[in-house]
């Protein structure tokens, strides 16, 4: 056996256990689910009906649109607020900014279930805000519970700190010297923001947005505890299919649909990474 072959055997031998584990526990179930999604539950024959069901049934299609609405709003608002927060944390050196900088990651350490219940006790129609209002003679009903707005508020609570963390890291990589340089040659604050900071941090914004997007498409706890009955977010609709109706093939099809929705953002993520590599290679 030549030296080269031996080396190859060793190399592949080392990789094989990890490779097999991934194939068995990730790739194989995914492949099975995809195959299942094209099969009729009772006959096993090839069909598209598991997919068309989600686009032709009014209630299911509403769920899809509703989920996209909640997710798009969450991404847009979370990124906007997180960007402002990150700018403040990066360029202000006051005591307040340092305190916020130390505290803003705390929500990441609160278990999701506790956070959701805490939010519910504050915003529900008989919650904290309502009770404070009653002290001043006002019966405030926010109407957030069981509606999209409530879900978005909760999602923002989870995602703003996360997005801000990623964007802050990106902004931290912009050296003070180039900003000072730009100011020296007469660029105003706004010009510095639009021509220097934004272009230099856009990649981190995209990455943060893709992560927020992906984690919210399949969210379950928040919509289960705070969402209404109709329309529902896809995570709940999926739970219904496999847990309530035992329609495993439709559940598989819905999983694939959700995967494709997530894949949109994964595509953006990979594209922005590739572009970056090209730039580095030049």
């Amino acid at each position: 056996m030549s030296k080269r072959i031996k080396q190859l055997v060793v190399a592949y031998g080392m990789v094989l256990p990890a490779f097999l584990t991934v194939m068995l526990t990730v790739a194989y179930p995914i492949a099975l689910a995809v195959v299942r999604s094209f099969r009729d539950q009772s006959t096993g024959a090839f069909t598209f009906s598991n997919y068309t069901f989600f686009f032709t049934t009014a209630a299911q299609f509403k769920n899809l649109v509703y989920t996209l609405f909640v997710v798009v709003m969450t991404v847009a608002i979370a990124i906007f607020v997180a960007y402002l927060l990150a700018l403040y944390l990066r360029f202000s050196h006051s005591r307040i900014s340092r305190t916020i900088g130390a505290l803003y990651l705390l929500p990441r350490f609160v278990p999701a279930m506790c956070a959701v219940y805490a939010m519910i006790t504050i915003i529900r129609d008989s919650g904290l805000i309502n009770r404070i209002g009653l002290l001043f003679g006002k019966d405030i009903h926010l109407g957030l519970m069981y509606h999209a707005q409530g879900l978005i508020v909760m999602n923002l609570w989870f995602n703003i700190p996360f997005a801000a963390m990623m964007i802050t890291a990106g902004l931290g990589a912009i050296p003070d010297s180039i900003i000072e340089g730009a100011r020296d040659v007469g660029a105003g604050r706004f010009k510095v923001l639009t021509s220097m900071i934004l272009p230099l941090s856009v990649k981190d914004v995209i990455i943060a947005a893709t992560f927020v997007w992906m984690t919210n498409v399949g969210s379950f706890t928040t919509p289960y505890l705070m969402g209404g009955n109709s329309p529902k977010m896809l995570g709940i609709a999926l739970f219904d299919q496999f847990n309530k109706y035992l329609s495993y093939n439709r559940a598989a099809a819905l999983s694939v649909i959700m995967f494709l929705i997530c894949a949109v953002s994964a595509g953006v993520y990979i594209y922005s990474n590739l572009k970056d590599t090209e730039w580095e290679m030049q």
């Binding site: 529900r124 129609d125 009903h141 926010l142 109407g143 957030l144 519970m145 069981y146 509606h147 707005q149 289960y224 505890l225 209404g228 009955n229």
Partner: peptide, 10 residues
């Protein structure tokens, strides 16, 4: 009802 619509809790 809450927020203007009928709601059944989970």
């Amino acid at each position: 009802s809450s927020g203007g619509s009928i709601v059944y809790p989970n």
